[in-house]
Design a protein around this nucleic acid. Sequence first.
DNA 1: TGCAGAAATTGGTTGGACCATTGGACCACT
DNA 2: AGTGGTCCAATGGTCCAACCAATTTCTGCA
Lengths: 244, 244
Amino acid sequence: MTEFSLPPIQTTARDDAVLKALAGFVMQEALGPGQKLPTERSLADRLKVSRNTVREALTRWEGLGLVERRQGSGTYLKAAVSLDMLHMPLTLAGGNDFTGLMRTLEIRRALEAEAAALCAVRAGKADIAEIERKLDIMEEAFRTRAGMSSEEDWEFHQAVYRASGNPLFEQIIAAMHELFHRFWEHPLGVRDFGHASFPYHRTIFECIAAHDPEGARAEALKLIATVEDDLKRGAAKLKLSDRK
Amino acid sequence: MTEFSLPPIQTTARDDAVLKALAGFVMQEALGPGQKLPTERSLADRLKVSRNTVREALTRWEGLGLVERRQGSGTYLKAAVSLDMLHMPLTLAGGNDFTGLMRTLEIRRALEAEAAALCAVRAGKADIAEIERKLDIMEEAFRTRAGMSSEEDWEFHQAVYRASGNPLFEQIIAAMHELFHRFWEHPLGVRDFGHASFPYHRTIFECIAAHDPEGARAEALKLIATVEDDLKRGAAKLKLSDRK
DNA sequence: TGCAGAAATTGGTTGGACCATTGGACCACT
DNA sequence: AGTGGTCCAATGGTCCAACCAATTTCTGCA
């Protein structure tokens, strides 16, 4: 085993420097998700900083979801780490569930429309075929189960984001999606939620297949509008039933 | 017989409990952004935990951008804190090259346009006045220094995002902005970068003041287009000078 | 009154100690 | 061979008591 190149830290901004050194180490060793990284004591020793400082740095990564600590076992990578990562902590605070959901929807509206338009410009034959496949699966699920299936629906949208040629769309909207679903514990009581959005999936696809960006953008906007509508109806019902 | 669902038992969660207690304290005292919260020593004393534990908890909040620590001074709130916050740390990989920057710009185009449109709908008199103030400052800086000042420019845009009524816009674009600036520390060699975007700031403002969402969206799109142009010119120059 | 320097305050770092959990090694018994 | 028990070293979690560095506040002199 060769000696790791972990040069000692230099001056102030210790924990930040520790993170940078660690990121470099992870890249150098080509560590991937699930793999274990050195123990805190070992890191403290090799970086010539105290264990507490190492811990503060790791706490940051843990908060960012990059790393998982298991007492008695070790610290494990949860995601790919590189030096040029961009961390974007989103906090959705204040307000009730409804305003939180509407806020994520506003972001999604902006990104969904742009992604659909970009996709219409850039999608190749293979991309279009893949999107159509997801669309068929979704429509089949809609028929057999007589309702929207959020799983297959999400697969379709992801295919569109991927074909947009910009992976950032998928990453950000995936975060929004998770945020959305974390609110979703109390399903608002709208039985056929998302029902109205169904037809627009195919119209979006047709615009993409026809390489019509403005059409795709317009259809995407209509789709989001139906979801917002459902949300408002749900909120209204909730308000009624909440009467005391 | 299916197995009973056995949720993982929870043994120790000190720092998490500390955060919950702190959030409760902040709400109870009605502390807002900018205000100072108790010293680490005081918190450790009152919560009957060690200062290290308090520090780990505060490190988490700092990583989430909720709090700012100033050595010698104290720890200050940077955002509203409530018990029902949702945190969604998003880490984007890659993007320190030209294509990466273009990708962030595509995201920014989508969000900037939507934020401007929303702002035109929702901005109140106070918001509009604030935006105009930032605009005046920016234009003044432009005249005196004969060039775009990224600092004042950014202030203007932030004011617009804030007036959009959806804090997520500011959070996401702030991350994009940071990525952008991290890159052109090594300036692309375009001397008057952003020069072309200057006039659109005022046109955007005028559309917002006139409550014209579609106009604001169109002007915002034009602004981003000029930045993309600058970026492409810079990349072309870079490519030339990189010849070996 | 004004201001430079001392003193107190506060976050940042260190080193060492102990606790709780984990996982493997080893062993006795079936 | 397999099952369960015990022990032990490794590892993260917490605590303590200092000291360092940046900032703020106070103090006393000019």
